[in-house]
């Protein structure tokens, strides 16, 4: 690589660097801020005196979390949900995508199924009918409600279909000649070739299940069963002071305990932060390969 040294290109490089640094800062500052607050004195955080460096450095909030059974119970629920949800969504998605990746000539009702899926992706019945359906299916207050309801993300299916279609036809024909049936074709030819897109889809699913709090709130009847983000959401949600009653203002101080809440948020971020780099290389490959047609 030859370095050009015209003034114009230097300015351009400088600008580029500045913009990239700015974007990096935008991503990092909230993270550092949360960390700084979590390590600060409680009253200093409440008074807004903490910015990117802790004031009154201490580990109290982390010590407190270590002794908090509810936090870890929710943490485990979330892990369980991510594992189950990741397996189920990716598995069903692959099974759904394989037949749909065939042409209507090979699979006559393909377009009917496809439209059915697209319709379900674009329209939904709204919160109440959905809630009543889940209830009549007996899924209330049950971990399966969180992974089975919406267990087939249509968008992911479309990604996988496109990837399957872009795989070389010759490989399929070769397998056919060697006597492979549809199941063998899927597991021994298509799935190994589609690892990038499957990893992508898996990552999407993991992140979704880890961050999702609303279903946990609506479908779970007990706080012991809340996934982690639902647990955290109820800590940081703002209490409406206008309807507060006597015993609630006694709790005002705990409710506004920003340091503790920040510590919880920070710990909750860690698993995704750890998983991301490992799956990221697939993530980038997968999304370009799956969407570009040859």
């Amino acid at each position: 690589m030859v370095k050009e040294s015209t003034i114009g290109s230097k300015i351009f490089d400088g600008l580029l660097l500045a913009i990239l640094l700015l974007i990096t800062a935008l991503c990092l500052v909230p993270l550092i801020y949360t960390l700084a607050v979590s390590l600060s004195e409680k009253s200093a955080a409440a008074a807004g005196r903490v910015w990117l460096w802790p004031v009154g450095f201490n580990f109290n909030s982390y010590k407190q979390i270590m002794g908090d059974g509810a936090f870890f119970r929710s943490f485990l629920t979330s892990v369980q949900r991510v594992v189950l949800g990741g397996i189920i969504s990716t598995g069903i998605g692959t099974l759904m995508a394989y037949p749909l990746s065939k042409s209507p000539r090979q699979f006559r009702l393909r377009n009917v199924f496809m439209w059915f899926l697209i319709f379900a992706m674009l329209f939904n019945g709204g919160l109440i009918p959905w809630y009543m359906t889940m209830k009549s299916l007996g899924l209330m207050d049950n971990i399966w409600a969180l992974v089975l309801g919406g267990g087939l993300p249509v968008f992911h299916v479309i990604l996988i279909i496109n990837y399957f279609r872009n795989l070389p036809k010759e490989m399929e024909e070769a397998a056919l000649v060697d006597g492979a049936g549809p199941w063998r074709m899927l597991w021994s030819v298509f799935v190994p070739l589609a690892v990038p897109v499957l990893a992508t889809v898996l990552l999407f699913t993991i992140v979704y299940h880890w961050n999702e709090f609303f279903h946990g709130l609506v479908l779970m009847s007990r706080q012991d069963h809340y996934p982690l983000q639902t647990y955290i959401q109820q800590l940081v949600v703002i209490i409406d002071a206008a309807n507060m009653t006597e015993d609630q203002y006694k709790r005002m101080n705990e409710l506004s305990n920003q340091t503790l809440n920040s510590a919880k948020i920070f710990i909750a971020m860690i698993p995704v932060l750890v998983v991301y780099p490992f799956l990221q290389r697939f993530f980038i490959h997968g999304i370009t390969l799956g969407s570009v047609k040859e």
Binding site: D141, Q223, V237, I238, I239, Q248
Partner: peptide, 8 residues
């Protein structure tokens, strides 16, 4: 069922 007091 139970939920956190307030909006939830």
């Amino acid at each position: 069922w139970q939920a956190a007091s307030g909006p939830n």
